[in-house]
Design a protein around this nucleic acid. Structure first.
Length: 677
DNA sequence: GTTTCAGCGTTTTTT
DNA sequence: ACGCTGAAAC
């Protein structure tokens, strides 16, 4: 079974548990429980390399990861291992997220699935926009007072679909304040589905639904399952019921199956994921072999002590404690700050002090629960001219001008996409929701004939006619081109005047469009480009700025969710107070609280050798009265006495000591009379 | 009847 | 940065 010892010498670099996992017999389902920092990526890469060394064909191995970045990293490592063994990997392992692989397979099987050959992919924002459109059409926009916002509608829809449970149950459990609208929501969702089909679009949830339907189909499913000999899944603690169905359907016969995860790091409950799936894996897949990795190669022991103490607070805690292979180090610091501005100052000072001591900015990260928790810090960093990149939060694709551009791109491939039209038309002067709808009703959405129709369309206001003709012509011209770069260029040029007119800060936005066009030029087709962006959106502004230069140094700011799987020398966790971490929004049930705790656990275990947790003691902008100076926040309930005893406590209060009257020798004078004398 | 704009309040996490 | 509101402008 094993390759000859000389061939796979790198197996010797793994520890015993890792090696056992990497070389476990491929015909039994394998569950790898891998604690934080336990060399999970190394092990999984080694397993892929080992499977190939055993004779498996790379193209017949499917690797599902949480992000495309993770897939890339594993495949790079795998290739390096194979090279060392002198094995020339002929093909490529198929890798990506559940959603991106679903997209590839669905396109392959579009015909039997009854789908049109041209398809758009809606990202979360597009889905929300269509829901908003439907809500307006059904008249809910003006009637109700507090009807759920479009983002909430999208959340409810997605959660219901992903959990595969009746709407009523999902509402009762997670959106109780929306229960009175249950019927209305049902009507909206039904219509949403039909409109989506008319637009020849799939949303992110559809990708999983269609993949599952395909995999469970008697004939197509068998065909699909036969494409792969081995299926590996990373971050299995964050899969939902729909994804488990797909995995189960794909494993027909004795296909190999390896899953890796850590139930202590399950943080995607809001996406209907549940750690139950990893815990029940051995029950679902008979004859499962289990491997456990618990040596931590990332962090020093004092950091792990704190992480372990946090994890131990869970009612259903496992006796799984991370043990450091790196040894001792400095105790984590717990810094109490007077208020949020003070916290921002403290973080900036500490980051810069470490930088002086030789720790590059990019070896440090600031992690937070919610993207806006770093608002003040970002101002402070700007003032001090500290370069930083932020991950998570408002993403590029959500910026208005980027959406405008992407809608145009999508229209070339799919002119029946009404949501895109609706948005584009409103760029024109004198066109709001009402007129846009009228125009849409009177046009046949066919690019070849569109220019004539546009000129004749009575609904188009005079002011918009010429401007709109420019866009329509650009769309028609782009449709006759084949090269995506040329197409994107045409559309960008046509969009330019609108961007200038609409946004006061047009220049940086135009620059974004240039970058996007350049990226589009590298894709096979515009359709492909738009779909890839929806499936694997750029994680930060840096993703678009081209490959980073080697001497670029910047601090990383990231939501904890986006920090998953990453590590830094020094980690700064901010806003560790009740209401922020745990977030107020998550406290309605115990599951929510547990997930918040795991979130903190994930944050803590990102640090290699330095960890600082900041607690702002006082809050100013609480939604109270104007003259309320602010309340006192409470230290996060997860930072118990137990946890604090493992930290070095720092009181940071910059307010000057109170003045004693006797210290002031001259009287203080207040006089405004000089102003008008 | 619609569009547009200013002002105000709010903002969890993401494929 | 966005949605909602009310009021002005077309």
């Amino acid at each position: 079974m094993f390759g000859s010892a000389g061939e796979l010498e790198w197996l010797g670099e793994l520890n015993e548990q890792q090696r056992a996992a990497a070389t476990a017999p491929p015909d039994r389902p394998l569950l790898i429980l891998a604690g934080a920092g336990s060399g999970k990526t190394a092990t999984l890469s080694a397993r892929v390399a080992w499977l190939i060394a055993q004779g498996l064909t790379p193209e017949r191995i499917l690797l599902l990861t949480f992000t495309r970045r993770a897939a890339r990293e594993m495949l790079t490592r795998t290739r390096a291992l194979l090279e060392r063994a002198g094995i020339a990997a002929r093909g490529q392992v198929v890798g990506g997220t559940f959603h991106s692989v679903a997209w590839r397979l669905i396109r392959l099987y579009a015909e039997p699935l009854g789908l049109p050959p041209r398809l758009s992919v809606f990202d979360a924002g597009d889905g929300a926009d269509l829901l908003d459109l439907v809500r307006q059409e059904l008249g809910y926009a003006d009637s109700g007072k507090r009807f759920p916002r479009k983002a909430t509608l999208a959340d409810i829809y997605s959660r219901t679909v992903n959990a595969q449970r009746p709407l009523s149950e999902v509402l009762a459990e997670h959106f109780p304040w929306c229960e009175p609208y249950a019927e209305d929501l049902g009507r909206i969702f039904g219509r949403y589905g039909r409109r989506k089909r008319d637009a020849q679009a799939l949303d992110l949830d559809d990708l999983l639904l269609y993949w599952r339907a395909l995999a469970q189909h008697e004939v197509a499913g068998a065909h699909l399952a036969a494409m792969f000999d081995h299926l590996l899944i990373d971050e299995y603690q964050d899969v939902n019921a729909l994804q488990v169905d797909v995995v189960q359907a794909l494993r027909r016969g004795d296909r190999g199956l390896t899953v890796v995860g850590d139930d202590l790091q399950a943080i995607y409950g809001f996406r209907a994921a549940s750690a139950e799936h990893i815990l029940r894996f051995p029950m679902l897949f008979a004859d499962t072999a289990t491997a456990t990795l618990e040596h931590n190669y990332r962090s020093t022991q004092p950091i792990l002590d704190v992480a372990n103490a946090v994890a131990a607070q869970a009612e259903r805690a496992y006796p799984k404690r991370l043990r450091s292979a790196r040894g001792e180090g400095r105790k984590p610091q717990l810094v109490f700050c007077r208020d949020e501005p003070e916290e921002a100052t403290a973080v900036a000072e500490r980051v810069l002090a470490e930088h002086e001591r030789g720790v590059a900015l990019r070896e440090q990260a600031v992690l937070m629960r919610a993207a806006h928790h770093s608002d003040l810090l970002e101002l402070e960093l700007g003032r001090r001219r500290v370069p930083y990149v932020k991950y998570g939060g408002i993403r590029y694709l959500e910026a208005a001008h980027v959406k405008d551009f992407l809608c145009l791109l999508r229209l070339v491939a799919n002119p029946s996409d009404q949501v895109s039209w609706f948005r584009i038309l409103q760029l024109l002067e004198g066109v709001g929701p009402r007129v846009a709808r009228q125009i849409l009703d009177s046009l046949h959405l066919n690019l070849a004939m569109l220019a004539d129709q546009w000129a004749a369309c009575a609904s188009v206001p005079a002011a918009a006619r010429t401007d709109g003709a420019g866009l329509v012509e650009a769309l028609a011209a782009a449709a006759t081109q084949a090269a995506p770069g040329a197409q994107a260029g045409l559309l960008r040029d046509a969009l330019r005047p609108f961007i200038r007119r609409r946004y006061p800060d047009a220049e940086p936005r135009l620059h974004d469009l240039d970058l996007l066009s350049d990226f589009a030029a590298k894709s096979a087709t515009l359709e492909q480009f738009a779909a890839e962006l929806a499936l694997d959106p750029p994680q930060s502004s840096a993703d678009f700025a081209g490959p980073p230069k080697l001497d670029d140094d910047y601090l990383v700011l990231s939501t904890i969710h986006s920090a998953k799987g990453l590590e830094w020398d020094l980690v700064h966790v901010i806003h560790a107070s009740d209401g922020n971490l745990p977030s107020d929004m998550a406290l309605s049930n115990r599951e929510g609280l547990d997930e918040e705790r795991r979130l903190l656990y994930v944050a803590l275990t990102r640090a290699r050798r330095g960890l600082t947790i900041y607690v702002p003691v006082r809050y100013f902008h609480r939604p109270r009265g104007i003259d309320d100076a602010g309340g006192f926040g409470k230290t996060s309930r997860f930072l118990t006495d137990d946890v604090q005893s493992l930290c070095e406590l720092v009181q940071r209060d910059e307010s000057p000591p109170p003045l004693v009257g006797a210290q002031i020798h001259e009287q203080v004078i207040v006089d405004v009379d000089t102003l008008w004398r």
